[in-house]
């Protein structure tokens, strides 16, 4: 028997496969497809203090090997998430839940974390959403912004605090180190890449917001590279995220330095993406002579 379990800041996951925030709702819809308890954990939909309808439509654009989204953090607000969504998910799901926190000011992040953190097992601080103005990614693209948010949230967060970083930066390593110094317990790498498509017949951008976040298999090498670079210089555990669609991708991401892996876009085209990966993972481990996944984390020099 191979061992697929991994440990994130003292929390044991039965396997490293986690549906990424924004690609899994609050989990209940997916419970109609399969038993969620096969998952390592679930990262729930990005949550803000106040309810949000999100951006105007269209807010999805297909691309080669991926898609753009400009949802804009649609969510029912932190109080509702804590009162309804998380308890409903807990009725179907006994594994760890990762809350994804977003805001438009440092105070927003702090307030949202104060409400959500006690109700989840890990917190993921989303300072990398490219689809909202005056917030989200604005904090994640400078060392100063990242440090401010992490510092502000740290003392209201009694759960392991992961920071989800943006790839839309010149040097992700320096931002990662800033987060580490500000007291983060881990990092999620990466959020979506800012992208754009144009409808050449109508001569307008496909997305109503013009630009959106690019994700899908096409971004896998970028995500992998960033996980690798950050793991080299940062001692925090990393959740690798970006274009993962197979058990092989999970293993590759872990070899680059990830302790766990999030699956995002693939959930949107194959509702069974995560259980499929989880089913194939032990087979691939056996073939590759990996007895325990912890043996391969960051083995690439």
């Amino acid at each position: 028997m191979v061992d697929t379990s991994v440990n994130l800041c003292g929390i044991t996951l039965q396997n490293p496969v986690i549906p990424a925030s924004g690609t899994f709702g609050f989990g209940l819809e997916m419970a109609e497809f399969y038993d969620l308890n096969v998952l390592g954990a679930i990262a729930i939909k990005g949550t803000t203090v106040a309810p949000r309808l999100g951006n105007p439509s269209p807010r999805i654009a297909e691309c080669t090997q991926g898609l753009l989204n400009s949802i804009g953090l649609q969510n029912p607000g932190a109080e509702q998430v804590v009162k309804e969504e998380i308890p409903n998910l807990r009725m179907h799901f006994r594994q760890p839940i990762i809350g994804n926190i977003c805001g438009f000011s440092v105070d927003d992040y702090r307030e949202c974390c104060r409400i959500v953190a006690p109700n989840v097992d890990l917190v993921e601080l989303n300072i990398s959403c490219p689809n909202v103005h005056n917030g989200g990614m604005a904090f994640g693209t400078t060392e100063r912004g990242a440090a401010e948010v992490v510092t502000a949230v740290r003392d209201v967060c009694d759960r392991p605090l992961f920071v989800k970083l943006s790839p839309n930066v010149t040097d992700i390593v320096s931002i990662a180190k800033t987060c580490e110094n500000a007291g983060a317990d881990g990092l999620t790498l990466i959020n979506t890449l800012l992208g754009m498509r144009i409808d050449i017949r109508r001569r307008v951008p496909v997305l109503a917001q013009k630009m959106g976040g690019f994700s899908g298999p096409a971004v896998f090498p970028v995500a992998l590279r960033m996980v690798y670079q950050v793991h080299k210089v940062c001692s925090l555990p990393i959740i690798g995220c970006g274009g993962v669609q197979s058990a092989e991708d999970v293993i590759e991401m872990m070899m680059a330095g990830a302790t766990a892996v999030q699956v995002g876009s693939e959930n949107l085209r194959n509702p069974y993406a995560c259980p499929d990966i989880i089913k194939h993972l032990p087979e691939r481990m056996k073939q590759l002579k990996i007895n325990n996944l912890n043996q391969i984390i960051g083995i690439i020099e």
Binding site: M30, I60, Q74
Partner: peptide
């Protein structure tokens, strides 16, 4: 215009009299 088609991506949300 849908992303997933089963309610997880929120790509096709519309405002209605009864909320999103």
């Amino acid at each position: 215009r849908m992303g997933c088609g089963y309610g997880v991506c929120m790509g096709c949300t519309i405002p209605t009299q009864l909320g999103p």
